[in-house]
């Protein structure tokens, strides 16, 4: 499957955004920062966006990606309502 081959690059993207939660970057910018081809990055950013890990803002060349924090329930118990804070 395609996704397995992309695993490494996907982790690379994930690492980048994880360690830089306030990074706002376009595909072109990421190409430069990661030193990876835009064509390789596209499907991965697509997929990370679909999973809700990244957030895309804007259209076209000026569209940029940023990390989206997961939902956190600070005091979870076996009975609590699962409405994220």
């Amino acid at each position: 499957m395609v996704k397995r081959e992309h695993l490494s690059l996907e982790m690379e993207c994930l690492t980048l955004f994880q360690s830089n939660p306030y990074l706002f970057e376009t595909i072109q910018g990421l190409e430069k920062r990661l030193g990876r081809k835009m064509s390789d990055l596209e499907p991965i950013l697509e997929s990370l966006t679909a999973q809700g890990i990244l957030q895309r803002t804007g259209e076209g060349a000026m569209a940029y990606f940023r990390y989206k924090e997961p939902a956190v329930i600070a005091e979870f118990s076996f009975t609590s309502e699962l409405e994220p804070l």
Partner: peptide
């Protein structure tokens, strides 16, 4: 003595009850 839950995706309804069961 607290627990923290961090999640992505939809964890309401059926899945939520499963999570609580699993945690317990």
């Amino acid at each position: 003595q607290k627990m923290m839950l961090v999640s992505r995706g939809d964890i309401k309804g059926e899945k939520g009850s499963y999570l609580k069961r699993a945690a317990k």
